[in-house]
Design a protein around this nucleic acid. Sequence first.
DNA 1: AAGCTAATTAGCTTATTAGCTAATAACCGA
DNA 2: TCGGTTATTAGCTAATAAGCTAATTAGCTT
Lengths: 97, 97
Amino acid sequence: MASPDSVFKALADPTRREILHLLRSGPMPSGEIAARFPSAWATISRHLAVLRDAELVTTERNGSSIVYELDTTVFQEAVEHLLNWAQPRGSNAKRRS
Amino acid sequence: MASPDSVFKALADPTRREILHLLRSGPMPSGEIAARFPSAWATISRHLAVLRDAELVTTERNGSSIVYELDTTVFQEAVEHLLNWAQPRGSNAKRRS
DNA sequence: AAGCTAATTAGCTTATTAGCTAATAACCGA
DNA sequence: TCGGTTATTAGCTAATAAGCTAATTAGCTT
């Protein structure tokens, strides 16, 4: 599993958060993602590598293109863990109904 | 309200996450927090300023010391928002019972 | 294999940030 | 108000990371 550090670091950059946001609509090849951003393709490619390293996205080769997909499993696990982790000890913070 | 960017940036540093973790046990003055870490007091003080800027902690002066307290309200709001935000569109991801 | 497209990696520059020490500010007690 | 304690801010250095262009890798087509 990816380290918490890599996940938080990955989320710290606004461009990477936008990429994740974009991928909500479904899997998308690298080039198509890059086309939606003002930055150079190489720059986006590196952002994608960071997201992949943090296991926030998965990749799959499809012919000549490489398709990126949002991995919400890891993402949600991280968030759940985070929620629990931040709970002040002995506090009875209200629980979601 | 603090920008999402400032919150994620604040969480990206492991020392700052440790500080938040430490504050789960209750409010604590700056000096006492600094004493628990190998870094210089000034360094911790700056980390605290970042956390304060992101509104992840609140401060209150108590005589000669300044007491830091975890602000879980903002924290949880951010996480809730994040959870919702990451949901793939049209997916019906399982809901917590 | 040659040529084309898709994508990543390498190498560089610039900006940000964590760390330090020293200086400054705020408060308290004698 | 002087000295001591508590904390932050200033100024610097070193490391990290984002951005670019150019080079490289991988796959497809003819």
